[in-house]
Amino acid sequence: MEKIATRDSYGKALAELGKRAANVVVLDADLAGATKTGIFKKEFPDRFFDCGIQECNLIGVAAGLSTMGLVPFASTFAMFAAGRAFEQVRNTIGYPHLNVKICATHGGISVGEDGASHQCCEDFGLMRTIPGMTVLSPSDDVEARKMIAAAYEFVGPVYIRFGRAATPVYHDENFKFEIGKGELLRDGSDIAIIATGIMVPEALAAADALAEEKISARVINMATLKPIDEKIILDAAKDCKKIVTVEEHSIIGGLGEAVCAVLAENCPTPVKRIGVNDEFGHSGPAAALMKDFGLCSENIIAKVKEFLG
């Protein structure tokens, strides 16, 4: 399967969007090469504003630009967009509900060698707590590109997390992305695996392996973390009885807790959360690190079997 990093998808989609949408402007904080906004910068230098290494100001500038009728796409690493500038996002974009798209790359453990200081496993939690914030996490290249177009059409603040490492492209070009809709990728009745981001291909691989052992696993791609698709979760609970969530994020505050909240209030169902436990990351090659943290199909298979007993 072809592999593409979703940050590359973002860069390409943004440059494409720039061609048809004259009101799109892009901001970055000295990371255009890494976030891939550099592709847009090359095509539209007059619409690209580098803020230098000042993420808090970047968020405020984006807010101001949006009040002038422009649609800013503001980019830096997830650690700095959601973490360092959290309060700026909350107060100058979230509170006034401004039409800014915060596109953060380098989310999660797969940042790799840079280590814990740059491996943001808290962004879903931080962004989900802001009232009115839409939180998205694409699972492959196709979804990431379609998501950019959807985020532009959507009026309001949006946070999107992209990955650094190249990951499998499993959607075909006919795939249609819709904000707020989970995607049923594979039906199953013994267990439902709800995954987001680059963990989705891992969940699909796990389901294939489980099928060989006569375990029928449903797989759901939850690309919208907020507002979350309650129906697809509740349907899974009714049909499958047990649910596993998988995310490249802390098990605190992310997909797992969002799914648990829906289930606890509507249809109590046993859940096992797979993600980064309450600990910091560390340095290493991305693929090895993901295995180290159990963010891989092998661990999903083991956890599912343990869960089903």
Binding site: N57, V61, G64, L65, T67, Q88
Partner: peptide, 15 residues
């Protein structure tokens, strides 16, 4: 929240 308004004013002026 202090320190943030001036950034938004910069965004408006730049816009």
């Amino acid at each position: 929240s202090l320190g943030q308004g001036i950034s938004t004013a910069c965004g408006m002026a730049k816009g």
